[in-house]
């Protein structure tokens, strides 16, 4: 969609619909990239609205066998790779042909009768001796195997206890993170929330590919900052958020990043009449007024 629309909502709505009518590529499963920050949020709203359309259809329960077929076909790839381990017999070399007795043309001379009897007696004792030896080896092998299993059992118990401790610690961390995210979700999805989509005005620098949103609930009690793709702040510096009331910036607090992402619930209450939000890089601890250029700015809020 290349037409210009005075109303960004119109542009976003038609762009989403246009995207649905243009499925030349088999991989195209989402709407086209938006070019404008407000339109980006609006497109997301319209994409979700149209994505809800199928909920109006009667659900179609698939045949019970489909689930199994699908999972088997996916897990099957891995199974093939380890298939030889799963069926040891298949890994054995093909059975070799029976050893053919050497062809003997001339029968060797037979020994005297007494000697033959003595040999036969010894030959009769061999199976018993072999069986005894095999039993000894088996007992020794079994002993070794039991010792090995006991050792494995002990070390696995130790590993299990250690894993349980780590798992419990991880679970606590995840629980705390989940609680924070749910609280964020509540705020962000509150009725009549206002969204400020911040973008880099120059398209250069640490914020070039950043996507930052500020969500302000209607009661302006606690706003939220969500950051993606922002470069880490330089040493000794911090990112500082500013509420813009007209052209006047008012500090809203500082934040720092971990792995380019941050979701922060800010306590500073936004002043009345906020028309925009901006981010600058300031000395650690923040500045009373912006000293650097505004690397991220939103001048137009979107009302959900």
């Amino acid at each position: 969609m290349t037409e210009l629309h005075d109303d960004p909502e119109e542009g976003a709505a038609l762009a989403v619909l246009d995207g649905f009518g243009r499925l030349d590529s088999p991989d195209e499963t989402s709407v086209p990239e938006p070019g404008d920050q407000v339109e980006e949020v609006l497109r997301r709203l319209f994409t979700e609205a149209t994505g809800l359309l199928p909920y109006a259809l009667a659900p179609a329960p698939p045949p019970a066998s489909l689930r199994g077929r699908l999972l088997t076909s996916i897990v099957g790839d891995a199974t093939q790779e380890i298939g030889h381990l799963l069926s040891p017999a298949a890994a054995l070399p093909p059975p070799s042909p029976a050893l053919a007795a050497p062809s003997v043309d001339v029968e060797p001379p037979r020994p005297p009768l007494e000697l033959r009897h003595a040999r036969q007696a010894r030959a009769r004792r061999w199976p018993a001796r072999l069986a005894a030896a095999a039993a000894l080896v088996a007992v020794a092998g079994l002993g070794l195997w039991i010792a090995f299993l006991q050792s494995e059992l002990r070390s696995n118990r130790v590993r299990l206890a250690s894993a349980e401790r780590e798992w419990k610690a991880d679970a606590e961390l995840h629980r705390a993170a989940l609680a924070r995210l749910e609280s964020s979700l509540q705020r962000v999805t509150a009725a009549a929330v206002t969204i400020f989509p911040l973008r880099c005005p120059t398209g250069r620098g640490p914020a070039a590919s950043a996507r930052v949103y500020v969500y302000v609930p209607p009661d302006r009690s606690q706003w939220e900052l969500a950051v993606h793709g922002l470069a880490a702040e330089p040493p000794g510096r911090e990112y500082q958020v500013w509420f813009l009331v007209g052209d006047r910036p008012r500090s809203a607090g500082c934040f720092h990043l971990e792995d380019g992402r941050a979701v922060l619930a800010m306590q500073e209450k936004p002043p009345p009449g906020v028309t925009g939000v901006a981010v600058t890089i300031e000395p650690k601890g923040g500045s009373p007024r912006p000293t650097g250029e505004m690397i991220l700015v939103a001048h137009q809020p979107v009302h959900l």
Binding site: E9, E10, A13, L14, V16, L17, R44, L45, F46, E48, A49, T50, G51, L52, L53, V188, T189, A191, V193, L304
Partner: peptide, 24 residues
């Protein structure tokens, strides 16, 4: 067609705003 599409999309967005919020 464009006008119909636009009006329909706007109405859907308005009518489904609570579900859209849940999804976002």
């Amino acid at each position: 067609v464009k006008t119909r599409a636009l009006l329909g999309m706007k109405k859907l967005r308005q009518a489904l705003r609570s579900d859209i919020r849940e999804l976002m």
